[in-house]
Design a protein around this nucleic acid. Structure first.
Length: 548
RNA sequence: GGCGGCGUAGCUCAGUUGGUGAGAGCGUUCGACUCAUAAUCGAGAGGUCGUCGGUUCGAGUCCGACCGCCGCUACCA
């Protein structure tokens, strides 16, 4: 089978704080599992993402600390890299939107859409602070909410009643920058003509197959309700400059236009680094490439509507194959949140939980259909009662029996019985089942299928009792262990996208390649097995003492 | 308010186009085993499928209303 080019695009995190388990379970872990599977299968995977440097939360944070936005990004970007490395999230490139390349690519997309008539220049009115001599983003204007009377409502939304606002509706508006009363003033901005792209977009969405129900229904309705043209520039000094600074130094391309372009610019950067600057085209042009965008549910419209609109406007680049958006991992019923302080950072968890164990616990509760609740006790339970009990124990009991009774050398499969070959066949079927589920981005179901195969191997051992048989019939015991070992080898492949570190250890002990090929490798009789310590440690509850 | 999703065993979740007595993992009870990190294997118990109404020979599955939770609502991305 020809290798398929598969783009694994993962949401760009704001570089304004550490990440929590909700982020990982929502996007990064599923993307990594998907990517590892496809690499093993022999497909050409390009997995990219990066730190979003231009998001509003970053400028807000920088304002609070009185530092430059770039300082905030430079503080957290290396932490992200460390986090990916520790957790085994295998990006081909994790860059930032601060690179010269990204800015150039963004401008070239801008120019292309403008040439093709999908971007135009319009004059609008906007709040202006006469004292600070600058235009104000909506959220920088404060005043009394016209709906509920809350005195400190922001220009974009009232925190008290939750209604969306327009800053000109605020009573007694005040600039948060200087305290002055803002005035309306004319300003020029570029608009993306979403209304013009609407029919094409709708036709494309209606032709999608295999998308998650909540993703496709929401997207279709969003477009059917009618798309408005959106301003893609802002009165800012932080962000991608316009070509030739056309509107002056104080106008920048706004983050929601440039951030999604990061998928493309990162692909191009990866190609440049790889020594073949045109290599990115393999994942972006023509009918071959498949692209999967792993994002959280709050990010759906940007990946099912706005990014596809930009790509349609460009004309020569491929639209997403699927956007398997996840719902949320919640903690005690609450969505994890950097700003609200709900949920510990991933790096804190990694101090007390092995990366594979954390990956397993998260993978078993991925919020593919619903918000899913995950507590520390649940992590302990998943690891101790499932991962250690079923898989860690299976590997350990098989290897230690071969070690004790056969001197660590794989015994001969003398005179195999139906049960022996059936076990191995069951594992091979499980590999197909896992593959089919992962292809459909049903990663929880795939994990369950892999674990079921491990349980079948445990049941096989119980039925055939090699520890008892060995006393009177060593040849039969050897046959059973030989087949149990083949099952271990197969299940290890099925689990490899989920627990890559442990999987590599097992592969090494068995003397087989790791992460290459989606099939069981036969372990020949006579091979001496490597030593292997227990794969996982049991966890104690509570994970973090009793302070939370 | 509008749009979308969700509400199924103690817990976390599956349930294709409506159809034999509603499922899985874990927990729990009983039994087996003792090679293995007191791990494993087998059997059982456990649910008026959010509420009410409707369509149908038949609905967890379709329709309506209501309750609750989540997301979006175009200046968070």
């Amino acid at each position: 089978m020809e290798p398929r080019p598969i783009l694994v695009a993962v949401a760009w995190p704001y570089a304004n704080g550490l990440q929590h388990l909700g982020h990982i379970g929502g996007a990064y872990l599923p993307a990594d599992i998907f990517a590892r599977y496809h690499r093993a299968r022999g497909n050409d995977v390009l997995m990219v993402s990066g730190s979003d440097a231009h998001g509003t939360p970053i400028t807000v944070r920088a304002d609070q600390e009185g530092v430059d936005p770039i300082d905030i990004v430079n503080r957290y970007h290396p932490e992200f890299l460390r986090q990916w490395d520790t957790l085994g999230i295998s990006f081909d490139l994790f860059t930032t939107t601060m690179t010269e390349n990204h800015h150039d690519v963004t401008r070239s997309i801008f120019n292309r859409l403008r040439e093709r008539g999908y971007i135009d220049l319009r004059t609008t009115e906007q709040m202006y602070d006469p004292e600070a001599e600058r235009f104000l983003p909506d959220r920088y204007v404060e005043g009394t909410c016209p709906h509920c009377g809350y005195p400190r409502a922001r220009g974009d939304q009232c925190e008290n009643c939750g209604r969306t606002l327009d800053p000109i509706d605020l009573i007694n508006p005040v600039s948060r920058v200087s305290g002055a009363t803002p005035v309306l003033r004319e300003t020029e901005h570029f608009f993306l003509l979403l209304s013009k792209l609407e029919p094409e977009l709708l036709a494309w969405l209606e032709s999608r197959e295999g998308w998650r129900r909540h993703v496709i229904n929401w997207s279709l309705q969003f477009v059917k309700d009618g798309l408005h043209d959106r301003a893609i520039t802002r009165d800012l000094t932080w962000g991608v400059r316009l070509p030739d600074d056309e509107l002056g130094e104080g106008k920048r391309i706004y983050v929601w236009f440039d951030a999604v372009i990061g998928y493309l610019s990162a692909s191009i950067e990866w190609a440049q680094r790889s020594g073949d600057p045109e290599a990115w085209r393999r994942w972006w042009e023509g009918p071959e490439p498949e692209s999967y965008y792993f994002v959280g549910k709050d990010n759906i419209p940007f990946h099912t509507v706005i990014w596809p609109a930009i790509l349609l406007g460009h004309g020569d680049l491929d639209l997403p194959t699927n956007v398997p958006a996840n719902q949320y991992v919640t903690f005690k019923g609450e969505k994890a949140s950097k700003s609200a302080g709900v949920g510990r950072s991933v790096l804190e968890y990694l101090e007390v939980v092995q990366p594979d164990a954390l990956r397993y616990a998260l993978a078993s509760v991925l919020p593919e259909q619903n918000d899913t609740e995950l507590t520390d006790d649940e992590i302990v339970r998943r690891v101790n009662d499932e991962l250690v009990a079923v898989w860690g124990n299976l590997v350990n009991r098989v290897l230690s029996m071969i070690g004790r009774n056969f001197d660590g050398v794989v015994p001969e499969p003398a005179d195999p019985q139906a049960a022996d070959t059936e076990l191995v066949a069951t594992v091979d079927r499980a590999l197909d089942e896992v593959a089919a589920s992962i292809e459909a981005v049903e990663l929880r179901a795939a994990l369950r299928a892999a674990m079921s195969a491990a349980q079948a191997a445990n049941a096989y051992l119980s039925d055939n009792e090699p520890w008892k048989v060995v006393k009177n019939d060593p040849a039969r015991a050897g046959t059973v262990l030989h087949h149990a070992l083949q099952a271990v080898a197969g299940v290890n492949v099925a689990l490899s996208p989920y627990i890559p570190f442990a999987s590599a250890s097992v592969a090494e002990a068995l003397g087989v390649p790791s992460g290459e090929g989606w099939a069981r490798t036969e372990i020949p009789a006579g091979r001496r097995l490597g030593a292997l310590a227990p794969l996982f440690s049991k966890l104690d509850s509570p994970l973090f003492g009793d302070d939370t």
